[in-house]
């Protein structure tokens, strides 16, 4: 009991010391502390905030993707009166009442990742549908426009996963000789993707291609195939995580698409900065998803500590 209390007090003191900075703080909300994508986003937001003279406080539900906890964290963060909030909502629709509260308190709030309703000042997004369509085209061309493929979805029903899958399916319409033999969800988890792939290989001995809605799942599927001694299947995925880019360089993964949490975090914080200065910002900012292939892989996947933020100006999105 005593030690628990002592540690709580220590934490309290260390945290309150860390708060001291010039322009105030920005609260950063992510869905969980398990998926590396959100760590990229947190680091991106940190880097941008430091560059602009802010400090950050990070919030993520202790149980991954727990929506109720995120709502409580928003309410608690309002009490701290931050200069702004950047946000990956667990659920865009359900968060509306909370976002309303944030706006009522006069705090600017920017959503990065999702488009959707809600009352955010601005949205920073990638076009998931287009990403799915583009990587699928690379796969289809590699296969010469024919063969059997499987699609591994993320969380069925989540906007990101659904849009990526829909994009893939749309591209496949123009390749009638490619047959989708199975669509299975693996909830963005590597172990689940591995087991799904193991089972699918039993069901369909010949699989020419795999489209995975995230690098993490693609790598799980690749592990399954490699340990079964199964070669020749081409895999494409999305996200451009450090792991994913390495796999592309090594030729294990055919292609991935850049979905940079780091840059989204940067841009979201920059928008908060502009909002606090009273500048106008666009309501929707779409970042361009570049394709990561063996030829271009060198440009991507730097370790987080070596990355730098591109400003809106660099990206050609603002003056």
């Amino acid at each position: 009991m005593k030690t628990a209390l002592a540690s709580v007090i220590l934490l309290a003191i260390s945290a309150s010391c860390a708060m001291a900075q010039d322009k105030g703080e920005i609260a950063v909300f992510t869905k969980n502390k398990v998926d590396p994508f959100f760590e990229e986003a947190r680091v991106g937001a940190d880097v941008a905030a430091k560059g602009l003279g802010y400090s950050t406080v990070q919030y993520a539900p202790t149980r991954p993707n727990n929506f109720q906890e995120q709502i409580a964290q928003v309410e608690d963060a309002i009490t701290r009166k931050p200069k702004g909030m950047v946000f990956v909502p667990v659920d865009t629709k359900g968060l509306k009442p909370s976002v309303d509260k944030v706006r009522e308190a006069g705090i600017p709030i920017v959503n990065f990742i999702d488009m959707g309703d809600g009352n955010f000042n601005s949205y920073v997004i990638y076009d998931d549908h287009k990403m799915g369509a583009d990587v699928t085209r690379i796969l289809a061309e590699k296969l010469g426009g024919k063969g059997k493929i499987v699609i591994i979805e993320g969380i069925k029903g989540s906007a990101t996963s659904d849009n990526r899958t829909a994009g893939a399916q749309e591209t496949l319409k123009s390749y009638p000789q490619i047959q989708v033999v199975a669509v299975q969800a693996a909830n963005y988890q590597r172990l689940q993707a591995l087991q799904v792939m193991e089972n699918l290989m039993q069901q369909f001995p010949e699989i020419d291609g795999v489209i995975a809605a995230s690098d993490n799942m693609a790598l799980g599927a690749i592990e399954a195939m490699e340990s079964a001694g199964h070669s020749g299947t081409q895999v494409v995925s999305m996200d451009g995580t450090i792991d994913g880019v390495q796999a592309v360089s090594a030729g294990r993964l055919l292609a991935s698409a850049e979905f940079s949490g780091f840059q989204m975090g940067c841009t979201a914080v920059e928008i908060i900065d502009r909002l606090t200065k009273g500048e106008a910002v666009p309501e929707r900012l779409e970042l361009k998803a570049e394709m990561i292939t063996r030829e271009t892989a060198d440009k991507f996947g730097q370790p987080l500590e070596r990355r730098t933020c591109k400003s809106l100006k660099d990206l050609g999105l603002a003056s």
């Binding site: 969980n32 398990v34 590396p36 790598l219 799980g220 592990e223 340990s227 792991d243």
Partner: peptide, 16 residues
């Protein structure tokens, strides 16, 4: 065994 199988460690692997 789990590490050897998936070749990756993340803090969510034991929950399920």
């Amino acid at each position: 065994v789990a590490l050897g199988r998936v070749n990756s460690a993340d803090p969510g692997m034991g929950d399920p």
